[in-house]
Design a protein around this nucleic acid. Structure first.
Length: 298
DNA sequence: ACTATGTCCTGCGAGC
DNA sequence: TGCTCGCAGGACATAG
């Protein structure tokens, strides 16, 4: 679901709402769980930690955790697990907590993942896979119908690739040197740039006047300069509008974004180009829908 | 090392 | 109404 602007919006929303709160207990759904780290390690890493901040790295949401949370208040005995038949992990001594004073909780939302700040009495949505109970009485819930999302913990999380809004033009240009893959595929490669997904790749290529099938290595310096500026422009505008709500995307407050109203090619197959009226084409590149104007993009 | 393809999941809307 | 099909914001493993 979410690309850089949506993840940025979600991370900012979470940061403003849960920074300073303390994770008191964690519940994880049963296998197959969308976990990249072992469940006991996730539980041990999160519990009794204070949330020092929440930020975005590529398409990942990173909760920065620090020691100093109050000792875990045990749940009332007999309280049922949120979802019938699933294991309830509690703070325990079986798995030693990391020795470092800091750690991170990493969430990747995949296609359909959501992180919601809820009250305990709010109905547990279907496909809820994790719940972190906070000292304030609220809960952070991870809901993900398609299970492409992933949870993990780290001591010093590192993501590959460059942040598109931080990378300099020269480095940006060098990323595509000698690559025979279509520029669309290269933009989606998170090891090059991190955070660009299908919508923003298409929108950026339209603004830069470049067809998605063009080989990355065939782009001129001028092409790459225009693409660099287009990517930055599109992402900044989208962040300002709270991201794109295409089907069911909402941020952690349940608010929709509005950048979908600015889409010029994505999802507009057969509709007239907003610049030249030529019908927008849709082709499949690397298994992903790709939209472009055959007149405006060369 | 780079590139193309299939696969993991569930839900929704279009078309019959 | 109810079925099947195709498609969906992503990222891996695998094969060439």
């Amino acid at each position: 679901m979410p690309e850089l602007p949506e993840v940025e919006t979600i991370a900012r929303g979470l940061a403003s709402r849960v920074t300073g709160d303390v994770i008191e207990s964690v519940w994880l759904g049963s296998k197959p769980e969308p976990l990249k780290s072992p469940a006991p390690k996730i539980v041990a890493t999160l519990e009794s930690k204070r949330i020092a901040g929440v930020r975005r790295v590529g398409k990942h949401i990173v909760f920065d955790l620090e020691n100093g949370g109050r000792p875990s208040l045990r749940l009332r005995s007999g309280q049922a697990s949120p979802v019938k038949g699933k294991t309830h992990h509690k703070a325990g001594a079986r798995t030693p907590a990391p020795t470092s004073n800091t750690a991170q909780w990493i969430v990747h939302l995949g296609m359909t993942g959501r992180l919601l700040v809820c009250k305990p009495e709010d109905e547990i949505e279907k496909h809820t896979h994790a719940i972190a109970r906070l000292a304030s009485g609220r809960e952070v819930r991870f809901v993900d119908p398609r299970r492409f999302g992933r949870l993990s913990v780290a001591q010093a999380f590192e993501a590959g690739g460059h942040e598109p809004l931080e990378v300099e033009l020269e480095r940006f240009t060098s990323l595509f040197h000698g690559r025979k893959t279509p520029i669309k595929s290269a933009l989606l490669n998170q090891k090059l740039l991190r955070g660009v997904g299908n919508i923003y790749a298409d929108e950026s290529l339209f603004r830069a006047g470049i067809r998605p099938r063009r080989r990355a290595s065939s782009l001129t310096q001028e092409n790459l300069r225009r693409l660099y500026l287009a990517v930055r422009e599109v992402l900044k505008e989208a962040i300002a509008l709270g991201g794109s709500s295409v089907s069911d995307y909402v941020d952690s407050d349940g608010e929709e974004g509005f950048f979908q109203l600015q889409h010029r090619v994505y999802g507009r197959e057969d509709e007239p180009c907003l610049v030249c009226q030529t019908p927008i084409k849709r082709v499949v590149i690397a298994g992903r829908s790709s939209h472009y104007c055959p007149t405006c993009q060369k």
